[in-house]
Nucleic acid binder design. Structure first.
Lengths: 251, 251
DNA sequence: TTGCTCCTCACGTCACGTGAGGTGGC
DNA sequence: TTGCTCCTCACGTCACGTGAGGTGGC
């Protein structure tokens, strides 16, 4: 409870002024430490005795922080109030950015909630990869592929995956032992090639991918190739090479 | 540039994997420190040699953080993935809150930019107070009054201020010396009373203020009264008391 | 003596940012 | 020798939160 001093005047404790202002004890003390809020006089027992001037100042500081000013910028602004509007505009631009980002995040979350799926890939890709029964190895490859080719290409990969039929050959490929003999590898490649060719024919590289600067495309290629080299075993890599030759992707 | 190792395999440095993932050196090291991202093997010179598995994991972590997960919650979620959807919903609620707050802040900033005025009071009140040529003392009183009566009452105070005419008597009141004699004080009260009465008649207390719980109203009253006791000098307080008696607010 | 409120350090939070000081190959 | 990149501490950021340890009046 506020106590009386010097006759009619009333003073508040730190906790009281904090609650009056709708904030916390620690916040008030923090403003003292920064010199933003002057310390009031003390009672005989050492307690701080806040008065209206302090409440007014505290409310003013809170108003500025709610507007998005940092405590430091409140100080600097009060020593040089010249470019107040510019500061406001800078804060406003930051706020617009933040809202933009948070809204995009909410949209991602909405998709995830509407169709829960492992969030290791962008949502559409993840759902398609799950429906296509991709192995975790293949998912890893698509994680790299999708990130490296950029968001714009995701719909392309997604459409391709949605068109993909996980047949027996694919299952065999996933569990192909690294020492599979040549006949096995060649036979598997022959079985897998047709679908690869069909997919590549039905889903040509989109313009966004084709029109990249040369260096970028090369980096993407190197990264994806090196990912494949690590993700697949020698027999699987050989099967892939054979498929590419059959399909005419390489010679 | 990536360097080669064990024949065809390629490894990246910390900086390289960070850039590949679109993040920073320090971020990668931070994830190591938290145990979120396993450390890769080292080259002979002690350099870390990252490979695809690390890139995939790094991209996954980044995806979670962009969704709003804290680093800690990524860990705990992976050890117990059961309530994934609940976590998503909690994050979504936080995001909605944040967007709500930021949007409200932007609206305040928009008002301030459209009509720049001292931001010591809520915008509408500040503009009205400035137009009414209120002294900084009076502004302080309104800062306390507005905060204590809550946002809902601001339009009431604003309407009152917009109706207020800062006449000669008000100017005299602002600079009234604390030892002004009784005749001066009484004359001033007589000149000021009519406008006070008119204002209070044209702007009755809104329901939002009248329907407060008793304790709340009392606290507001005490705080505002104590603000007045500090903001005005004895002669000014006496003039106010005389006005109130003339107007019949008190007896 | 027990409870309650006040006080002053001073370390903790969160996701990294930023030097400081040293190494290794060209 | 100079430049460049890597490495490991370790303190800094921002606006406070959270004890720890002690005091003073009922």
């Amino acid at each position: 409870m506020p106590w009386h001093r010097e006759g009619a005047l009333v003073a508040w404790s730190t906790r009281e002024i904090a609650e009056l202002a709708g904030t916390t004890l620690r916040t008030v003390r923090h403003y003292h430490a920064l010199g933003l809020l002057p310390e009031p006089e003390r009672e005989a027992n050492g307690y701080k005795a806040y008065r209206t001037e302090h409440l007014v100042r505290l409310l003013e500081i809170r108003r500025f922080t709610r507007l998005g000013f940092s405590l430091q910028s409140i100080e600097s602004m009060e020593s040089d109030p010249s470019n107040f509007v510019e500061r406001l505009e800078a804060i406003d631009a930051d706020l617009a950015d933040s809202i933009q980002r948070l809204t995009a995040t909410r949209e991602e979350i909405r998709l995830l909630r509407s169709e829960p799926t492992k969030p290791d890939l962008p949502h559409g890709l993840s759902a398609a990869a799950t429906k296509a029964h991709l192995s975790s190895t293949d998912r890893s490859l698509f994680a790299v592929l999708s990130h490296m080719t950029g968001e714009g290409a995701d719909t392309h990969w997604q459409a391709m995956l949605e068109d993909y039929d996980p047949d027996d050959a694919a299952v065999e490929f996933d569990s192909l032992p690294e020492d599979a003999d040549e006949a096995t590898r060649e036979a598997l490649a022959q079985r897998m090639a047709p679908q690869s060719m069909a997919l590549s024919e039905n889903h040509p590289r989109p313009a966004a991918l084709a029109n990249q600067p040369r260096g970028k495309t090369q980096r993407v290629g190197e990264t994806v190739i090196s990912a494949m080299l690590e993700l697949y075993n020698p027999a699987q890599l050989d099967v892939l090479a054979r498929i590419w030759r059959i399909a005419g992707f390489v010679d």
